[in-house]
Amino acid sequence: MSQAARPDRRKRRILPGFGLSLGFALLYFSLIVLIPLGGLVVKSAGMTWAQFWSTVTAPRVLASYRLSFGASLIGAAINVVFGFVVAWVLVRYRFPLRRFIDALVDLPFALPTAVAGISLTSMYAGNGWIGRFLEPLGIQVAFTPLGVIVALTFIGLPFVVRTVQPVLEDLDAEIEESAASLGANRRQAFVRVILPEVWPALATGFALAFARSLGEYGSIVFIAGNMPMRTEITPLLIVIKLEQYDYAGATALAVVMLAASFILLLLINGLQRWASRRRPVCGD
């Protein structure tokens, strides 16, 4: 990357096509994304503030936030731990089928979520491949909040692995070596040298997985059981409100979700800035 060409800003308008490309991109993006989303916000403005507030703070809705946020947080946290281990193993060790496994990490991104949902449900239900071993232990996964966490862990996995992997690959072996030569043992080297380097990427991966999980719908509806107050996620509540012809309620919840996504995006952006500032410009 260090050999990347550095454009001279004074010359930047030498290139043609700025107006055309930006104009087209903005027009397209506005038509497909921004205007429809803006319409959502405008639509919700048709409600009074009191109506809006009582809709988005109804007990059942609050319970769904708790589940959506809680399960997304836990799922992302599980992914931070295991995603890091997976990334570490994939980068540092060589073993048979490594490249195959590496490619498969992206499966949750490529696999339609509905397929993931029915597949996970059929495995974790009481008579499924995994469920039948957990059931006797008193652990029920499918149709409980635990099932939601499992699905969200599946969904979020590639986000952590893929943000941490390049950082681990770029990690300068010399720093570790000098730490070792200065007498640091492996654990110290890990805590003092590796972790500080990887930490911003982990945080970014966590935020990405969290953001993705928050809006997830396809896989959850199959595995959650959809019990009011217990296993209803917020996107499902939007659908339920729609099916009860409650357009205003659905819109209000959608605006809350939209605001949450937007804040998360800003946060992720900040994290990435912070991460890239902390990462040294590594040269060869």
Binding site: A125, G126, N127, F143, G225, M227, P228, E243
Partner: peptide, 21 residues
Amino acid sequence: NVPVLDSGARGSLTTFMQREI
């Protein structure tokens, strides 16, 4: 006493027959 509240009749049938809940 209801452990799973599916969104439709067919979902419930699946839960009862296939998932044996």
